[in-house]
Design a protein around this nucleic acid. Sequence first.
DNA 1: ACGCGCCCTGAGCAGCCTCTGAGTCGCCAG
DNA 2: CTGGCGACTCAGAGGCTGCTCAGGGCGCGT
Lengths: 227, 227
Amino acid sequence: MPGERLLLVDDEDNLRSMLEAALRHLGFDVHPVANGRDALAAVATVQPDLIVLDVMLPDLDGFEVCRRLRTEGKRVPVLFLTARDATDDKVRGLTLGGDDYLVKPFSLEELVARVNAVLRRAGLSQPGAVLRCLDLEMDDEAHRVTRGGKEVSLSPTEYNLLHYLLMNQGKVVSKAQILDHVWQYDFGGDGGVVETYIGYLRRKMDAAEPRLIHTIRGVGYTLRAER
Amino acid sequence: MPGERLLLVDDEDNLRSMLEAALRHLGFDVHPVANGRDALAAVATVQPDLIVLDVMLPDLDGFEVCRRLRTEGKRVPVLFLTARDATDDKVRGLTLGGDDYLVKPFSLEELVARVNAVLRRAGLSQPGAVLRCLDLEMDDEAHRVTRGGKEVSLSPTEYNLLHYLLMNQGKVVSKAQILDHVWQYDFGGDGGVVETYIGYLRRKMDAAEPRLIHTIRGVGYTLRAER
DNA sequence: ACGCGCCCTGAGCAGCCTCTGAGTCGCCAG
DNA sequence: CTGGCGACTCAGAGGCTGCTCAGGGCGCGT
């Protein structure tokens, strides 16, 4: 699972380095470039397993980059990043070949989920196992959460938050980390929301013993089996 | 069932790579070419089990390609792709030889269905089993849907949508995925149609408990047995 | 020509989801 | 003991999503 090569194409410096850091930290071999021409050149040298490709680029647009790759016979899977409004007409047909797209602004969780999904479909990554902690289970493919066998109904944000906690079970994550990973990267508010949503999760899936979500005062939260 | 060799012949780059990706993703061994001459050459080297052949080609037209193959004694089954109006006289009689045709623009679901049908007639593919989910059954060959033993009458789009949901039961599919697979590839509208058709399906075949079609708010829909 | 079924759109509506702010509690330090 | 800060809870405004329904256009068969 470790070491897949990612080609990351985005012209916004800020966002690009943020994504680079995040993906690198997850064990990917990230190669960042800022425009379409460099992207095409890099494909030959890097031989990436996946391209994360912004649609809005200064020179060639993302679709054009992809088209040229395909006519050259390259079949690298692509994950497109698109702006909110350009979404409807041009994006049609993207989910067909194992490719996919993501609407800006997104959260890191969503990006990572899509990256793994695309790699999985391309046969380069393990089938996404069911996440588990004691009697808590999350089946990501079916988007289903159960605690002690009983189904728990979660809103999108609650689901993403729980997913992040499960991915980091045993470790303590700060409110800042949670905001950075679960909320959209342009979110302006403070950490108060996180407290609210931890509260929602506790009520919905952590009401009975043993408690799984623990507060580490002054530090953050952790999801763990024992006390 | 896996690994049949398909020769894909179409001169529109966009469509060709879209179909290539989609069919490859379904497990076929796809060989794309862009014109009639390359097609004839490729038949010898690839030895395809089926040819998906656009009728409108820059050099030889699709029928001509087929004719030459037949005079050489090759009996590979052919699935023609035709434009809306060229349908009438020429295409008649095509279904007699085990061949078939599809009118552009089509949906991926239709293409896959025809591909499998042709392969099945040629004895290269398993008879399409009956799709089932609890007391809901779809016999694709007979084009018949029953819920709890009672026949349900569906319009073409409703049928295709249900077929796609059945093929993906247990998994969540987004409105975008549904549009990409069930609607014609040149459809320009937004996801509102999908909501409408989910509504139609619910009324026709999901009125009684237990419900099979579930909405995952903010994500998509899923077809599954339990609640 | 006419009617019918099918497909899609748009408006209206209801319920859910998200986030904020205020109030309270409890831990810890001084 | 007391003050301060961090965390929890609750209620509510506002936005957004998805559902439903009615209607118009199109194609096909009568």
